[in-house]
Amino acid sequence: MFIRFLLKDFLWIRSFFLMPLFLLCFNVSSYAHRVNIFAWFDGEKVNGRAYYSNGIPARDARIDVFSKKAERLYSLKTDHNGRFSFDPKGKDTLKLVLNAGMGHRATTVISTGLKAKKVQKGSNGDIYPLKNSNKSLTKDTPCNLSLKDIDSLLQLRLTPLEKEIERLSMDSGRITFKDILSGFGYIMGIMGLWLYFLSRYQSKKTR
């Protein structure tokens, strides 16, 4: 009896895995109907980009920029590469809402993080975060570097980091094979639960 059941329903058990896996062969690098938005403060500007989960840029998508008090500051569009840039007007927390059409939407909140760190002030009232590490450095220490030099030096150091963060944030939005397999697992689990309750219900009915 049990063997006959297995033979009869083996086709189902096999096709349970085969059919979705066959579909997967079409295109494993998945395209998803989901948009992501990624933005960061870059000096006096805010830069960012919008893209679908497989990395295709979201072109000509609308982005609304809101302040902390939910007033709309800008309404702009992404360029051909899905990038955008604007002047934050001195605000330190901004909410960006991306609308890529056809009901696709994503939001992100960015912050300079300056308030959270509590900037230390020196004895003469300067913003002076190096106070404890280097006592000889004061406001009057002669320094041959202009602000522009420092900026370009920092740019040199930070650009690779920015790129890395961008890559990581894009990777985190990607769908992995693990997600797909776990979905199958959940569906099999739901099927098992469903059959369990059905059999209990039916055995109660026949009793």
């Binding site: 349970f16 998945s30 395209y31 998803a32």
Partner: peptide, 22 residues
């Protein structure tokens, strides 16, 4: 009914991955 549950699950799994196929 109980006989149809595996079918529904199978097609649910198919639908689940179909949306990944661009």
């Amino acid at each position: 009914d109980a006989k149809k549950v595996p079918e529904v699950s199978l097609l649910s799994a198919t639908f689940f991955v179909a949306s990944l196929i661009h």
